[in-house]
């Protein structure tokens, strides 16, 4: 899975390989970091332009995924800040709102509906815990790897993950109970 580029000869020649292997990783993590579907193409483009520019700086001290995630996270953060300035909105009760429309209405594909549910569930977690949770549970990264990716001490990662799991569990239970009761 990992592309560990040799530190002696990294660089632009490897961009193709990195792009091919990690494009889905960058895309789905932008989505999970709160970049909405209509904007994720723009954000992905930003990430890969930065990767292209900085690939030579990648020294192989972390895994390629870890390095890419750092860029992805900063891009998503910039993007969300920019969007918030443009269109502030109230996200409260979003899990309930999503749950009340599930299962998928005809207008949404199953995958789009799944994305909405996952968006809403992840949105229940504050940013720093959501990131740790995503990487552990959805990308199967190890805690040390996560610590490198987010630039936090290992113990902090452990404690964030513990709390995040409890929060996600609660959000998932709410989602399930709303679906069972149904509108």
């Amino acid at each position: 899975m990992e592309t560990a580029l040799p530190s002696t000869a990294p660089g632009a020649a490897d961009f193709d390989a990195v792009y091919r292997e990690h494009f889905p990783f960058v895309w789905r993590n932008l989505r999970r970091l709160g970049v909405a579907e209509p904007h994720v193409e723009d954000a992905a483009q930003e990430v890969w332009v930065v990767v292209h520019r900085r690939l030579r700086e990648f020294e192989g001290r972390s895994s390629m995924r870890t390095w890419l995630f750092g860029i992805t996270m900063r891009t998503a953060s910039d993007h969300r800040r920019w969007r918030r300035r443009k269109e502030p909105r109230d996200r409260s009760d979003e899990v309930d709102a999503v749950a009340s429309t599930a299962p998928s209405p005809e207008s949404l594909t199953e995958r789009a509906q799944g994305a909405r549910v996952l968006d809403a569930l992840l949105d229940e977690l504050p940013e720093e815990r959501r990131v740790v949770f995503m990487l552990a549970e959805l990308e199967q990264m190890s805690s040390p790897e996560i610590a490198l990716a987010v630039g936090a001490p290992l113990n902090t990662v452990y404690s964030r993950l513990r709390v995040a799991r409890a929060e996600f569990e609660a959000a998932a239970q709410r989602y399930r109970s709303t679906r069972i009761q149904g509108p």
Partner: peptide
């Protein structure tokens, strides 16, 4: 839900 945020197949080429 884990694959619901994967990119549509045509996106890799488009973004590239």
């Amino acid at each position: 839900l884990s694959s619901s945020h994967d990119p549509p197949p045509e996106m890799a080429l488009r973004v590239r």
